[in-house]
Design a protein around this nucleic acid. Structure first.
Lengths: 162, 162
DNA sequence: TCTACTTAGTTGTAGCGTCAACTATTCCGA
DNA sequence: TCGGAATAGTTGACGCTACAACTAAGTAGA
């Protein structure tokens, strides 16, 4: 069983760290979703999708690339983009050069939506995650999440610098 | 706006740490769910619910307490317990002393299910989270998640020692 | 003890995500 | 250049979660 760990249970220290970590993993999405849903009628995933497009060259990405940077499956992304397209935030255009592929492009309306939504969202991120941490914590968080992400995303499809 | 942060965007260091962190938060539940669904026909939340009961005195907790330790809303928990009850892993009994309340108790079958499922689940946790970290990382993770949890769960309804 | 409020929990509905199935296109080897 | 495999993406059905509405029971003030 290559890749499977030998030892079965966790040490006390590991157990304590894991319980806290998984609690944060369970609760954080709800907090982010609630704020965005209330203030902008967007899920956190909706917002993240728009935000990734807003930073892409020409505000455009192919569906597969967009799925990678948003940590999503292609079916999930396709459904989400359909909804955002109906609301006028994204436009789908066939990709010249590969007729199987689809480009998702942020519309002007989508660009404005991101700009209008960002401050409230960032405020939430600060309040719950960043502000309670000092500089050393932020550096440690970056290092640790990098190691875990190396396992979760071994191909580095997210193009986060390592 | 008490509690709202003054500064609007994040520093580069903060931004990088946040992007990695949120990527892990988005991906980890899928990995845990996939393994448990495949090997035990349980969601991670199902498993966590059974596991919390298995550690409780008399393998029993009131619904409200169980919701707190599993990081869930009461409606969510109620639905999940209904399903697990149908499968014979949990039994609901009215709480003597407060007739509004309901006790959820792990059955023998549920106890066996946890025992049979734990090794595979822990293996996944090790593979993706614990094993890539050294001792210092685990200590740092514990400290940092404690700080964030202090914001997400200010009442400390989770009875994690602080 | 009557009423209003709070707490505990359940249920129904609507929305989102996963999985499997499907179409369309491109790639590749003989 | 033909046929099989791989890639890109969409769609539909089903299961899980959030939210709101609800029932039932305890609590507290007049």
């Amino acid at each position: 069983m290559v890749g499977m760990s030998e030892d079965v249970w966790l040490s006390d220290d590991q157990q304590r760290a894991w319980v806290r970590f998984i609690s944060v993993v369970e609760r954080l999405p709800g907090v982010l979703d609630t704020q965005l849903q209330h203030d902008a009628d967007l899920t956190h995933f909706d917002y993240f999708t728009l935000a990734m497009l807003s930073e892409a060259p020409n505000r455009t990405l192919r569906m597969t690339e967009l799925a990678a940077v948003t940590n999503a499956s292609l079916p999930r992304l396709s459904h989400v983009v359909s909804r955002l397209e109906k609301r006028g935030f994204i436009e789908r255009t066939p990709c010249p050069g590969d007729r199987r592929a689809t480009n998702a492009q942020l519309t002007d309306s989508g660009w404005e939506k991101v700009g209008a939504t960002a401050p409230g969202h960032v405020g939430t991120v600060r309040d719950y995650v960043i502000d309670p941490l000092d500089e050393q914590d932020v550096a440690d968080l970056h290092r640790i999440m990098g190691k875990i992400l190396g396992k979760l995303d071994p191909e580095n499809r997210l193009r986060v610098q390592r």
